[in-house]
Design a protein around this nucleic acid. Structure first.
Lengths: 248, 248
DNA sequence: CAGCAAGGTTGATCTGCGTCAATGCGCGTG
DNA sequence: CACGCGCATTGACGCAGATCAACCTTGCTG
């Protein structure tokens, strides 16, 4: 059995794994029973498509482990990644049937799924779930808007630096809360996936990564393992005013 | 006194103006009293900045009439519009203090504001408000992600067509639900604002608008009044697969 | 270890859009 | 009416990034 904190907990009831209590200590045992009934796990291999855009979607899912991407594709094949699903992120929208994006597992992936109808009912009977989902959705909206600036106004070099800063910050902040100085992490994305995220071609991504390496902004061991000797330098290259911005 | 449907109503209690009942028939009169106490109106002239990014924001606002834009700006002046606030849209995020964007009134604007603290309390005591806000936020997230495809992958011509399609559809669907054939509307944005929305320069916007006119996709009376003789042709130019996508 | 495939790098060339600059148009104001 | 101002259009030119193409690296498999 997987241990899985659904991250729905509000501050006053944090840290209660969903398998122990419905969502939080406030929830009574009836809800727990309901939840056990509507919940199930699904695994996916790296590269597998979880959901096709337009598919009927009868569940709401939360990532337990692994990484997935949300992408949109035009008929002629141009694709744009519109989001990254990391552990604890949600996908699928309460109150609508069709999936809006392709969801693809980038690594091996485990999702915790809830049947949609009962989940919606639970949202009505358990108000802080809706509140918590609202917070998470607002975070994603902020991230999406931050990314609109990246896509619309930044140069290729700044785009690459922005992406590295986001991934680097997230990885580094797992070990320590303050992100500065030297950080080290692995890229979870291929050059092509990076290009899809940044609205570039993979050739341009490759060139700009090489350029940042040549200029000493980053060091590379292999193609995926990145060392950033000075994080603030990277932020400068990303065109960010302060350490403030850029969630994901 | 302004009549203002806050659009917080869930389907089963639609059409109850906030000044009559707190939010919906389900709410008792105590909440109504509270709401009257925490609510106030503010007016802005066209061009006026409602909120500066980074300002402390002690209210949550809903647009009553007029249009405002959400923009982000880099130190060197590059700006990207990340959202359009139309009547009934919300701005300001429950649970966070600082504003993330500049909010600028594009036309004369009236906002209905709620003091943040009591509003948050009300969200806890009146669950369907959080649910309704969640729906609205999910809509905005979809729109933002749709826009990421536009910004990241579409050509200048497609971008212009996409923007015209969005504005045209919204305006047209006020009169009738089915949007097709000939439609007519006024652009609420200057060329510069369009450029900021689309990640282009105003010169490119101007050129592409002229090109669409030359090619018979649109007709122009003056600089702002637009006639689209065939809406599906416009969608084609926008690179949209079907009538489906593109909210706002 | 050869052979192959997937992912990545690098080079040469092309082009869409940005940049800089001049001109046009409508409108309110002295 | 002339003037100035905000907004829009149009042209000439250059460059960042796309495109096309060759080649390299790494890891797997027979």
């Amino acid at each position: 059995m997987l241990t899985h904190d659904l991250s729905l907990a509000t501050p006053d009831c944090s840290g209660c794994p969903i398998r122990h209590r419905a969502v939080c200590a406030r929830c009574d045992s009836d809800e727990l029973a309901l939840l056990e009934e509507i919940k199930y796990y699904r695994s996916f291999e790296a590269g597998q498509t979880v959901i096709w855009s337009g598919d009927r979607m009868d569940f709401v899912g939360s990532v337990v482990s692994g990484i997935a991407t949300l992408t949109q594709t035009m008929e002629d094949g141009r694709t744009q990644m519109v989001g990254l699903l990391l552990p604890s992120d949600f996908v699928g929208r309460p109150g609508r049937d069709g999936a809006a994006y392709d969801v693809v597992a980038t690594s091996d992936l485990v999702m915790c799924c809830f049947r949609k109808k009962p989940f919606e009912q639970m949202m009505e009977t358990t108000p802080h779930i809706a509140q918590r989902l609202l917070q998470m959705t607002l975070d994603e909206l902020d991230a999406a808007r931050e990314w609109m600036l990246v896509l619309g106004r930044k140069t290729a070099r700044e785009k690459i630096a922005s992406l590295l800063a986001i991934i680097g910050r997230r990885d580094a902040s797992i070990q320590s809360t303050s992100v500065q100085g030297r950080i080290v992490f692995d890229l979870p994305l291929t050059r092509e996936a990076m290009a899809d995220y940044l609205g570039l071609t993979l050739e341009t991504v490759s060139r700009q990564v090489s350029a940042l390496k040549r200029d000493g902004v980053i060091e590379l061991q292999g193609k995926r393992h990145v060392t950033v000797p000075d994080f603030s330098r990277l932020l400068e290259e990303a065109g960010d005013d302060a350490d403030g911005g850029l969630l994901v």
